[in-house]
């Protein structure tokens, strides 16, 4: 039998192999195995880094010391500045982002344009659906663009700078974020959130718009709510007395979502408030200019 288009087939197969080799975890697995057998170096990324089109990133190591409260309209600019200080001052970045958002009709696309260039952002907007998030825009672009990861970090930090506080500012912190002697189990462990000493029944409010990812109860976290705000920003509220929203519910910033309490493994009534960026717990106070006062009180 005589094949008709062998050269075309060769090119098409080469294209598929190129795509699979460089842009799938299976390809990375083969490349890593090859490098191990032949003792050579490979540029294959960790297998899990092939998901999310480069937008699933850890938060940057260093926090930006805040001179004062971040105006909500400048939160993203502060995030961008924390990722790349050479972009200009936060107010200058904010005005650039505003004009980019006006032409691109999307805040995520504006962040993408800031780091990857306007042409790239326009291209991504044309090829992503309507009202796209960064992940949709990034899926239209060739992977392994570091600028996409930078835009993702900027949006993540911008989201964190824009967060409200779950309780009145006057509520005192009874146990801060960080390594500490565990009050119940003993031994040094990471306290992944901040404990806020409030009486049972105090209203707990969502710190930003989001979707309830988890509303459940267990003997350690008590009645727990996990809210996904998008862009890798997730907040959790533990030890509540009563949950007022359920799995999959959309919540608005400032909406009452629970009544605080003393459920789960806890020494007394308090709220454990936790902020996760890119799947890693971070100190929520890093993103606030005012720091609530500390006091001795209930913890977990």
């Amino acid at each position: 039998m005589k094949p008709r288009l062998p050269l075309v087939e060769l090119v098409l197969c080469a294209l598929c192999l190129w795509a699979a080799w460089y842009h799938t975890p299976a390809g990375a697995l083969v490349r890593t195995a090859g490098a191990w057998v032949f003792r050579t170096h490979t540029t294959a990324r960790p297998l899990l880094a092939y998901y999310g089109a480069g937008t699933l990133v850890p938060p940057p190591e260093h926090a930006l010391p805040l001179p004062g409260p971040v105006p909500p309209a400048q939160a993203l600019a502060y995030g961008a500045f924390a990722v790349r200080a050479d972009l200009g001052s936060p107010p200058a970045i904010a005005s650039r982002l505003r004009s980019l958002a006006q032409t691109l009709h999307s805040e995520d696309a504006a962040a993408l344009a800031l780091f990857c260039g306007e042409e790239t952002a326009h291209y991504a907007m044309e090829h992503a659906g309507s009202q796209p998030h960064l992940i949709d825009l990034a899926r239209a672009l060739p992977p392994s663009k570091t600028c996409v990861s930078q835009a993702a970090q900027a949006l993540m930090l911008g989201g964190a700078y824009a967060l409200a506080w779950p309780l009145p500012e006057s509520v005192r912190i009874t146990s801060p974020f960080g390594m500490r002697e565990h009050p119940l189990l003993g031994g040094r462990r990471l306290h992944a959130g901040v404990d806020l000493g409030v009486m049972k029944g105090a209203p707990v409010r969502a710190v930003a718009d989001g979707i309830v990812r988890r509303a459940s109860s267990d003997g350690v976290n008590g009645r727990i709510l996990v809210v996904d705000h998008g862009g890798g920003v997730v907040t959790s509220y533990c030890h509540n007395d009563e949950l007022l929203v359920g799995d999959g519910d959309h919540v608005r910033r400032g909406q009452m979502i629970a009544r605080s309490g003393n459920t789960g493994r806890s020494t007394g009534p308090h709220l454990h408030y936790q902020l996760d960026l890119g799947g890693e717990p971070v100190d929520p106070l890093r993103f606030r200019a005012q720091r609530p006062k500390t006091a001795v009180g209930a913890s977990d």
Partner: peptide
């Protein structure tokens, strides 16, 4: 050689797009 490899790669790229 290259036809089976190419088909295998095509499906691998597809499963990755879906898994994502």
């Amino acid at each position: 050689i290259f036809l089976p490899l190419g088909m295998c790669a095509l499906v691998a790229v597809g499963t990755h797009a879906a898994a994502d």
